[in-house]
C-alpha cells in the first residue's frame, strides 16, 4: 500500500493533486461529473475585489499540445464568492480549498485576504501576482522583485493562513523573484502561471485572440514549468506547488522530483473533464512502477 499524502505548511492532503485555478470554476461544475473529494484539494477561480467580466472574445486559441487563453480574470468578485459560490461548494466538497486571488493594487490583495482568511473552507491563500499594478503604470507585480516583496509582506500581515505566492514565468530570473517573496515571509510558492503567447490567423492576418496576447498553457509548457520548479527549489527553502502542463501521474512524479510538494493540473481538465480524477487514480500504479512507497520522499529528489 503506497502513501500519497503530502503536507503544505501544516495542511496534510490525501494526495498532491490540485486542479489549477481557472480550469475548475468553484468546483461544483465538476462535482456533477465525479466526486471531487477524491482530489487533494483544488484552487478556485481567481477572485478579485470587484466583479469582473474579463476580456473581449475570442479569448481562446489552440496551439500544438496546448492553448492560449485571455479570459482576463472573469469572476463575480469576493463578496459574491463568499455569499454564493462557497456555500454551493461546501455542499459537494468536504476538504479545504486553495483560495486563488488576484489584484491590481496592494490594498486590493490585502482586503481580499482579510475576507477569505475568515472562511473555514480556505486551506491556504494562493496569491496571483501576475497582474498589472495600476499604481506602477501597469507593471506586472510578478515581474518586479520589489513589487512582489511588497505585496507578499502586506498580505502576510493580515493572513493567519499560509500564503503562497503564484509566480509568472515571464521573467528573466524566476529564482530572484522567488527569493524576494520568501524574504517577505511567504509560506510557499506556486508556479508557473501561463507563458505569454499569441497566435495569428493567417487568413485574416490578425491575432486570433481579441486581446492579441494571452496565457499559453497545456502539455506543451510542461518542460518549461519543470525547469522553473527545479530552479526555484534550488533558491528557496519554502514548499512549492508545481504546475504547468501536467497531464498524467508520470508528470506529477517528475514535477515532484524537480521540487514540488503538491502539483496543480490546469488545462488538462478542460480537454479531459475527468483528467484530475484519472491522475489521482493512476498515481498508486505509477508510484509502484518507480518503487515509491511514500510519495513525499521524492520531493526535490532530482537535486
Amino acid at each position: 500500500m503506497v502513501d500519497t499524502r503530502v503536507t503544505l505548511s501544516g495542511w496534510t492532503l490525501d494526495n498532491p493533486i490540485i486542479p489549477a485555478s481557472g480550469t475548475f470554476g468553484y468546483g461544483y461544475e465538476y462535482a456533477e461529473l465525479y466526486d471531487i473529494n477524491i482530489l487533494g484539494s483544488f484552487s478556485f477561480k481567481g477572485t478579485t475585489l470587484e466583479p469582473r467580466f474579463g476580456n473581449p472574445t475570442p479569448r481562446i486559441a489552440e496551439t500544438p499540445n496546448g492553448m492560449i487563453n485571455s479570459v482576463g480574470l472573469q469572476n463575480p468578485g469576493i463578496d459574491a464568492v463568499i455569499s454564493e459560490e462557497l456555500p454551493k461548494l461546501r455542499k459537494c466538497f468536504n476538504k479545504k480549498v486553495v483560495a486563488n486571488i488576484g489584484g491590481f493594487a496592494v490594498e486590493e490583495f490585502v482586503k481580499i485576504v482579510e475576507k477569505l482568511d475568515k472562511e473555514d473552507i480556505v486551506g491556504l491563500h494562493e496569491v496571483n501576482i501576475s497582474c498589472p499594478n495600476l499604481h506602477k503604470g501597469g507593471k506586472n507585480f510578478g515581474t518586479d522583485a520589489d513589487a512582489a516583496y511588497e505585496v507578499t509582506k502586506a498580505v502576510k500581515k493580515v493572513a493567519t493562513k499560509p500564503v503562497y505566492i503564484k509566480l509568472t514565468p515571464n521573467v528573466t530570473d524566476i529564482a530572484s523573484i522567488a527569493k524576494a517573496v520568501e524574504e517577505a515571509g511567504a509560506d510557499g510558492i506556486s508556479l508557473i502561471n501561463t507563458l505569454l503567447g499569441m497566435r495569428i490567423n493567417k487568413r485574416t492576418r490578425k491575432p486570433v485572440i481579441a486581446n492579441k496576447m494571452g496565457g499559453f498553457s497545456g502539455s506543451a509548457i510542461f518542460l518549461v514549468a519543470l525547469r522553473c520548479v527545479y530552479q526555484v527549489y534550488e533558491a528557496v527553502n519554502i514548499p512549492i506547488i508545481g504546475m504547468g502542463g501536467v497531464s498524467s501521474a508520470e508528470d506529477v512524479i517528475e514535477m515532484m522530483m524537480a521540487g514540488a510538494t503538491a502539483v496543480e493540473v490546469g488545462a488538462y481538465n478542460l480537454v479531459n473533464p475527468y483528467g484530475s480524477k484519472e491522475i489521482v487514480e493512476d498515481l498508486p500504479r505509477v508510484m509502484e512502477k518507480y518503487r515509491i512507497e511514500q510519495l513525499s520522499d521524492i520531493i526535490g529528489g532530482a537535486h
Partner: peptide, 17 residues
C-alpha cells in the same frame, strides 16, 4: 457561436454579456 476552451462551462473562454 464562440471559440470555446472546454465546452462545459469551466474555463470562461466563451462568456458574453
Amino acid at each position: 457561436e464562440e471559440r470555446m476552451g472546454c465546452g462545459f462551462g469551466a474555463c470562461m473562454g466563451c462568456s458574453c454579456k
